[in-house]
Design a protein around this nucleic acid. Sequence first.
RNA 1: GCGAGGGUAGCCAAGCCAGGUCCAAGGCGGCAGACUCAAGAUCUGCUGGCGUAGGCCAUCGCCGGUUCGAAUCCGGCCCCUCGCACCA
Length: 924
Amino acid sequence: MLDFFLLMDFEEMERKWQKRWFDGKIYEARREKGKKFFIHFAYPGISGYLHVGHMRGFTYADVIARYMRMNGYDVIFPAGFHATGLPAVSLAKKVARNDEKMLEYLRQNGCPEEIIPKLKDPEEVVRYFSRVYVEDYWKKFGFLIDYTRLMNTISLGYKKFIQWQFRQLMKKELLVQKPHYAPYCPNCGPVAVDKSETDISEGGDAEILEFTLIKFRFDGRILPAATLRPETIFGVTNMWVNDSIEYVIARVGDEEWIVSEKAAEKLRYQMEDVEVVGRIHGSEIVGKKCVAPIVNREVPIFPAEFADPDIATGIVMSVPAHAPYDYVALRDIGMPVEPIVIIDIKGYEIPAKEIVEKMGIENQRDERLEEATQIIYKDEFHKGVMNENCNGYAGMSVNEAKEEIKERMFSEGIAELMREFSRRVICRCGEEVVIKRVPNQWFIKYSDEDLTRKSIEWVNEMNIFPREYKDELPKILEWYGDRACIRQGSWLGTPFPFDENWIIEPISDSTLYPAYYIIAKYVNEGKIDVEEMDDDFFNYVFLGEGAARREIWERIKEEFEYWYPVDINLGGKEHKTVHFPVFIMNHVAIMPRRHYPRGIFAHWWVTQKAGMKISKSKGGAEPIPDAAKKYGVDALRLYYCHIGSPFVDVEWDDETVEQYKKRIARTWNLFQQLLSLNGKKAEIDEWLVSAFNEKLKVAREAMREFDMRKASNALFFEMHNIFNWYMKRGGGNEGVVKDILHKWVRAIAPFTPHMAEEMWENLGMKEFVTLQNYPEEEEIDYGVLKAESVLTKTMDDIEEIRKVTGIKASNIYIYIAPPWKWKILEMALQLEEEEGILNMKNLMEKVKEMDVNMKEASQYAAKLIQEMRKEKFMVIDERKYMENAKEFMERELGAKVHICGDDCPDPANKRRHAFPHRPAIYME
RNA sequence: GCGAGGGUAGCCAAGCCAGGUCCAAGGCGGCAGACUCAAGAUCUGCUGGCGUAGGCCAUCGCCGGUUCGAAUCCGGCCCCUCGCACCA
């Protein structure tokens, strides 16, 4: 075991300091300094236990909050819980039906047996996990979150707030109604189709495709051919109907359509007025003819097995020149018609034919047809041009023609739109999910031009990390369309104020919420009655409209004015295209300009290999409190800060985290070692002071952009080397070291606060280091830093020579550059600084005035000018510095060292090579 | 498709925006040594090639360009990853 773990029980240390911080309530946001900083993270959804990956972002927020607190800001760092929507409900449902996996999961994560039955109730789920997040995660990690402001999105006060927000949106005409097409289970109602498959048992990755149903005329009825490529109507040669199934005749408006039975079902959900009036077998249709619109061509109807009754209408038009399926199916029945080519594209004559032959596809059951279709579709869409067979569209690119033809067909009534999943989606109840038309769906009008423009302009004023995201955001805001903001079903959330049967969906109820943290404190403390929080209240507090009905309103408003706007909203990269844009837009839409958010910080994830989720086999899957126990909180905090840029995904790896645990131990040991020094003043002290301040400067500059990686690297890793070198050089000045430790401990406090507090106490300090001012760097003597680096470089060179030659030297001569070389350097530096130009001409003009060997001097000057382009030169007393370090060098090199001007022997004629910052060396 | 990010030595990973101090930080792994009965941990040194004087050569996905000078800037190409809306 490491000394550290024998001497220090870090778990005990964490508990000790956390208790003191929390007892001292130092986390509470107070208005004292006149300068404020508002940071929060995108609150987590209540979806169960979190894993070590989630702690990355939370840790960043705490480090930044602590850093800003030490830099003279009143910091408000609130947090809450996103309880709205499905996750909590879904968890409760699983518990209710005694889902084995769920029970197992709860037990493994340490859920007490007596709690489990209670979790059948979604509200209990919210209550329980809120507590877990606070007690087992945030407090365990020492986060100085303002715990007096905790809130969740299903509390009464919050709901009032959201209703106010929606009335504001309505007032500003940003709520609009229009038809919407959404996933729907005939048994369970609206469901969410997403990859986590909360509501569904299959098909979470399904996309909604938009098929164009082109109406072919057939015996006074309609054969609606479903296609994703309406532009290929010009190349239609025949129809495909499955002759082994029965179709239905459906009355649609005043038309009669022939579609598969299933299609009729689906269409009923998407269109008004659809009714099955008869049946017709596929074999009764096959062999007849129908008429294609647009081209007004009569085409035969052939049988095809791939005409799947489960996909769209079950009726397919055939474009054999451009659709591999069609080509192969025709070939299977002996090519009764010839393909018509309608798209010109480089590298192909008849695209479908060629790819099918190239891939050696044998018949219409070949699975590779899907791949062939993809290839042709992509190529044609991007590179294809409509040819002379396309009346009126010739010369147009395929992607343009597609849109125009589609629009024309819809407007002329010869086509309809049908939405269909790209794959089967099955509800938890076992029923197949369909797409249902919601005729009067409410949307938030994010497409609003004025709102979009103002939001984009505002982004320009914001501090956004990473920088790349700042450039990306305007494009996202531009792209962001209207969002369906309410839905029906059994989920948690706020009733829509204009129709209380609907619930506001989870993205839309989490946009202005940082503002509510200000109010949450007063609600939590019972200082305001939720009932009195009506529109007048919110208008007064947030918008400054109207008057306060009670004195407490004034206090709340005052506080809101002090803390708002948000300085940093921190969240994972998953928020880049959804949450952050609406966070900005809702503030712009509703709040006065001075309350628009000032900054966003988007961090990337902790993953397993290749972006996989954290898994048991690869580590990181243990409950967070177990990980905290295993590695120590400060080690984990340092790990998150230092493992990589915040803007790349990092792979969790037990062994790597273990290294950070060791790093904490080493840092602690080093501190103890430094603390025990009781030496006297020495030459190297000056170097230590400058080297320390230089790294401190690096850290402070990095933190200006919240670059925690760079800062922690300087403070923990580079600083470690500096202290080690100082001691190796014989340094041990108690006064200087103590002074520096006072600064260093403060500097590392935001990152590893528990260890820092312990160190601070060891230094004999009484107050919390957490509440101290962050140290500022003092003057840095670059000459000393340079001199020391010349020394180490010289020693490296000696080592190198020794290695190459194999000489075991007993005498080492170090020749410092002679005074005239330093004089010329001084002149060169002066020219550079005063005239901004340094070249042979102006330098030699000055050199001429000197009494030196002109040939030697000009050679030297030429080389000097060259070298000065690469390295920073300065005039320093190298000889004196080396003399002072002579004993050290002798000890290290195990040989007698002679520091020479022109006063020692020079048998190998090395002295002439001596250069500033690069003494000549001779060994014997 | 739309949008974004990335390819650096045996592996992980900094550096790139602000070109020179990059023969590329740090870590892991490997080798050697110290300590130890031993193992582990810890500490020290080495870890692209060549080299009997601090040097030379090679390397930052590939090709080209700009520059006195390119991992870094510009252009083209190849490959990988991620997000894309009712999911938080």
